[in-house]
Amino acid sequence: MSRSLEEILADAKTRLTVPFIDDPALEARMIVEHYSATSRTDAIVRPDMPISSDVLAAIDDALSRRLAHEPVHRIFGFRDFHGLRLSLSAETLEPRPDTETLVDTVLPFVRETAARLGTCRILDLGTGTGAIALALLKEVSQATAVGVDISADALKTAARNAADAGLGARFEPLLSDWYAATEGRYHLIVSNPPYITSKELETLQPEVRYFDPARALDGGEDGLDAYRIIARGADACLEAGARIAVEIGYTQKAEVTEVFRQAGCMLIAAVKDLAGSDRVLVFQR
């Protein structure tokens, strides 16, 4: 038995009207549109459009999963990021709009380096879905990237995303504990490392705590463990004039800057995200 698109949208919004969902109308629309292959235009022009029983079953399942705190994009299995559609998996962090700030910050440097040298070699530490590296490769055709991760599952996902985007020839997934297996020198190191303190993990929203991989979040007792590793190991694999750009938690600017200063790196740029929070720091040796 089919039901109309208008009915399904209304019912989905009602089901998702719970305290932990900020915008039930938006999420209801996302879920219904995804599984029914409809659009906002359809909802306006064809509200009586019939939705088949198999699609209704898929929507019902997705709504149940969302009510169990699973994020919408985890349910879909992908997330759009900087013009790319990236597949997600159990061991990948869901790339978020804040991280696009990191891409936009370093993009002029990647373009300038590629124009001057004919290439720009990028090392993406903790690559996850490959989001940062692939977004940069998409924008600069002369750039290449090595995406490092300790998770084989994440690297498989990153390689798939690279292939799907037509970037596989310029992206190398590398199984490594940070710098352990890396070789050669790079013009740019980028990373969105774990930066939440171990204690804070227990206070995160269920959508993050139960569905993002813990080791992509846990930055140790003070949240700075990964930055210490990145700062200490950078010198051995940086070209002259190279840069290091990292995403940070909004309270960590001073602490992360000091970590890199102690490793001989000078802060050359600090960039806020769209919400006005400190988000990206760029260093040079």
Score class of each variant (00 low, 15 high):
residue 169 A to E: 15
residue 166 G to H: 12
residue 207 E to D: 13
residue 202 E to M: 08
residue 197 T to V: 05
residue 164 D to K: 15
residue 170 R to T: 10
residue 168 G to M: 08
residue 153 D to S: 12
residue 170 R to K: 12
residue 157 T to E: 00
residue 213 P to K: 08
residue 166 G to P: 06
residue 176 S to Y: 01
residue 194 P to N: 04
residue 181 A to Q: 15
residue 167 L to S: 05
residue 180 A to F: 03
residue 212 D to T: 02
residue 179 Y to N: 00
residue 192 N to D: 00
residue 154 A to K: 05
residue 168 G to T: 11
residue 203 T to R: 13
residue 190 V to F: 07
residue 167 L to T: 11
residue 215 R to Y: 07
residue 216 A to H: 07
residue 168 G to E: 15
residue 161 N to L: 12
residue 203 T to W: 07
residue 185 R to N: 12
residue 192 N to S: 04
residue 155 L to G: 02
residue 168 G to N: 02
residue 152 A to H: 10
residue 176 S to I: 06
residue 203 T to K: 14
residue 158 A to Q: 11
residue 215 R to G: 00
residue 193 P to C: 01
residue 191 S to H: 04
residue 191 S to R: 03
residue 216 A to M: 05
residue 153 D to K: 10
residue 191 S to K: 08
residue 203 T to M: 01
residue 197 T to G: 10
residue 201 L to I: 13
residue 194 P to W: 02
residue 164 D to H: 11
residue 173 P to S: 10
residue 181 A to F: 04
residue 193 P to Y: 06
residue 180 A to N: 11
residue 156 K to N: 14
residue 173 P to Q: 01
residue 189 I to A: 05
residue 162 A to E: 14
residue 215 R to L: 14
residue 177 D to T: 07
residue 207 E to R: 06
residue 155 L to K: 11
residue 181 A to L: 13
residue 170 R to L: 08
residue 193 P to V: 00
residue 172 E to T: 15
residue 190 V to I: 12
residue 193 P to Q: 00
residue 216 A to I: 10
